[in-house]
């Protein structure tokens, strides 16, 4: 008995010292962590690593050849350009929507709250169909963006709507209005208050929202299937390119393009983590 208990206690004490926290892992939570990490690895980590390994088997030259392929390069360029444009629109409109939701009070505000979350919950294929019915060939308002680059823009704009709004809104709601009032009583005009008092406080949240909406836009697939027509060199986005490679049995090229998208996702996560830590440090 003694022999079996003593080493486990020693190990536990050792672990506690290493982690430096007040609550180290107990035996049962250690098993729980093990199971959780195994499931997470089986589901997400090993498959994602497989993408990187598949890319690396072709070597650097194959990777570069795939990315500089005319059709693939056009797809990546289109995706990034439209994603940047949409992120720009979201930064302005998202902040404005958050502002109206927090500071304005009017009948039907609850309905707007629901509308903002719809793009997050709506199946992407339905999102595409939905946009097609208002801005497609049978448009009741006579605007037809189907199979054009504007369709890619519209689809990105739709699916990324909630991100900036939902990251800025809580920060704006917590903002201390005394500071604004102090600035106003000292003679600052409203634009000056916005630029000098409100904007600096919202900046990390706006950045976080922008990063999320950029990441979401470059990885979008479902809403474009029916809307953009996926015309090579014109409206084909990166995700569609990966799928085409995969359907043609060219997994190495599919993995190469996927690696680029994964790299961007990782960058976004790192950036978000840094922003969150900065905010946490400021209290």
């Amino acid at each position: 008995m003694v022999e079996t208990v003593a080493p486990s206690q020693a190990a536990r004490r050792h672990r506690r010292i290493r982690s430096g926290g007040a609550t180290g892992l107990s035996a049962s939570s250690g098993i729980g962590l093990g199971v959780a990490v195994i499931w997470f690895s089986v589901l997400a980590l090993i498959p994602l690593i497989a993408v990187l390994v598949e890319t690396s088997t072709g070597g650097w030259s194959a990777f570069w050849a795939t990315l500089t392929d005319v059709q693939t390069a056009a797809a990546i360029r289109l995706t990034i350009t439209q994603a940047l444009l949409v992120t720009g629109v979201n930064v302005v409109m998202g902040t404005l929507i958050a502002w109206v939701l927090v500071r304005d009070h009017f009948f039907g505000k609850r309905a707007l709250e629901v509308i903002i979350d719809i793009p997050f919950a709506l199946p992407t294929i339905v999102a595409g169909l939905v946009l097609l019915s208002l801005y497609g060939p049978r448009s009741p308002v006579g605007v037809n963006v189907a199979n054009t680059r504007a369709a890619v823009f519209m689809a990105f704009l739709f699916v990324t709507l909630p991100f900036v709004v939902r990251t800025v809104q809580p920060v704006l709601a917590e903002l201390d209005r005394d500071v604004e009032e102090a600035a106003a009583s000292l003679g600052a005009s409203r634009p000056v208050i916005f630029r000098r008092v409100i904007l600096p406080a919202l900046f990390p949240a706006i950045c976080a929202g922008a990063a999320l909406s950029f990441a979401r836009a470059i990885s979008e697939y479902g809403s474009l299937v029916l809307l953009s027509g996926n015309l090579p060199l014109r409206t084909e986005v990166t995700s569609v390119r990966i799928l085409t490679y995969l359907e043609n049995g060219n997994t190495a090229s599919a993995a190469a393009v996927a690696t680029v998208l994964l790299g961007v996702s990782l960058l976004v996560i790192v950036a978000l983590d840094l922003v969150q830590r900065r905010v946490a440090r400021r209290g």
Partner: peptide, 24 residues
């Protein structure tokens, strides 16, 4: 781990599919 948990939110669904096919 806590940073990696958020990864699926920003990975393209197409990449998710590809990744699973490569392993399974």
């Amino acid at each position: 781990l806590s940073a990696l948990i958020d990864l699926p939110l920003s990975v393209s669904p197409v990449v998710v599919g590809l990744a699973l096919v490569l392993v399974y």
